[in-house]
Design a protein around this nucleic acid. Structure first.
Lengths: 237, 237
DNA sequence: TTCTGCCTCCCCCAAAATGGCGAGGTCACA
DNA sequence: TGTGACCTCGCCATTTTGGGGGAGGCAGAA
């Protein structure tokens, strides 16, 4: 069992493009004997990629109808940390039930487990296994395989992040200690004069730091600089 | 081995307060026969809790000196997804080297593996195993136990989130769609007038959104509001 | 040694953001 | 039939920021 997990992970690690990830989902589906395995990077802008075994018709329909914005699986996972069994979600609204009915018609399955994955800079992705079966069989599957699926989900996301970095590589700039301090105070809401007082330097000096940080971060203004410093993990607020 | 992982996880799951988590770290340290096991919730304000086997002296010193802001482990993990071996980090700056020397003097260990964990609303935590040993022994340890440690780290964070929800549930404010849009443009560096143009509304209306968002987020100014929106995962840049 | 990066301080002034006062409309929910 | 949340717009005065100029000292690296 452990060896099998290892080989499944290696399969993902060897992937060199999205097509390989796609193939890996198919292999996983067959190995676990479920209806579907899907990895899906959920971006604010709605782009980035996904790989999975859903039918093209369902994916197209999903995109076309912008289901991303009302899919209870996504909305639920955005607020949770632990893997989510679809049964735990809120299907009460009418829109949810219509969505569920349609999903089942498209062969998605009546049971599902979705693992939320979070990366740096607010990155967010989902890894889902779904199947057609009764509650008991599904509960056994989840109980036996959740841990392994979490590890595999992690591997998928690691690959996805690698692919992204390969594309637009972002060289993370280095801020000097005082620059970091200045950015931190600003991120905490202090004004220039307050931050200067806190750092026990003149406001002019503080300005020099802020401008230096702005330049290094390629930011257009202070707010932008703080946002970049935060999302690149240079500072913690 | 699998059964042991199960029992270690259950130990964490049964925890009903931070003291139990503390005890769990000690048990893990003894089980894996390493110098330290630490779970540490890194929060915006710098509070929240941690549980681990570091000496009280080191923890006090760490807090007193505000090492949080320059600890290469934290800064490195903030930008990574995968578990990080301390050797992979950037120890080049003078401050880093001083920090490392001091950490070793306090018995932290010369080897370490830190797993970054991210939860909803920008939550961020670290799970660390550290030891005194040579590179080879450490590499073997990491290779054999990383997967299990990832699962255990997940369990710790799950518990931590449960405790938080029970305690002072951080009321994550809900921003309206337009408010989110406004904050996103600001975080991208657009000025008010540019953002207003982008959203095809008057600059004044945009101001209303920004002020509403500021209030909801309890922020003192726009930069603060953007920083909070980002670190709570409300917006993604 | 020279050079580069970092830290510190000062001036002036234009541009932008903020804080306060208004106003009116839709839409859903109770 | 309110009530509240959301979206939209205007003006005024004050504060904060940003973009230019400068300056010197002190480290570590080439």
């Amino acid at each position: 069992m452990q060896e099998k997990l290892e080989s499944l992970c290696e399969r993902v690690q060897r992937a060199s493009d999205v097509g390989d990830l796609q193939a890996a989902t198919e292999q996983l589906r067959d190995y676990y004997d479920v209806a579907h395995i899907v990895y899906h990077w959920v971006n604010s802008v709605g782009e980035r990629f996904g790989a999975g075994t859903y039918s093209q018709e369902w994916v197209d329909r999903y995109v076309e109808k912008d289901y991303l914005r009302m899919d209870p699986v996504i909305l639920g996972c955005l607020q949770r940390f632990n893997p989510v069994d679809w049964k735990e979600l809120d299907w009460s609204s009418r829109a949810s039930r219509d969505f569920l009915r349609e999903a089942i018609n498209f062969g998605v399955g009546n049971q599902g487990l979705t693992i939320p994955i979070r990366g740096p800079a607010g990155q967010f992705a989902l890894f889902t296994a779904s199947d057609h079966c009764d509650d008991y069989v599904w509960a056994v599957f989840v109980d036996e395989n959740m841990r392994d699926l979490m590890i595999i989900a992690h591997e998928f996301n690691k690959k996805a992040l690698e692919f992204e970095q390969g594309g637009d590589s972002a060289p993370v700039p280095t801020l000097s200690p005082r620059e970091l301090e200045a950015m931190t105070y600003l991120a905490k809401g202090l004004s220039r004069s307050q931050a200067a007082k806190e750092m026990e330097i003149s406001e002019h000096t503080l300005r020099v730091y802020i401008e230096a940080a702005r330049h290094k971060l390629g930011a257009m203004n202070t707010t932008h600089a703080v946002a970049r410093a935060l999302s690149r993990g240079l500072i913690v607020v």
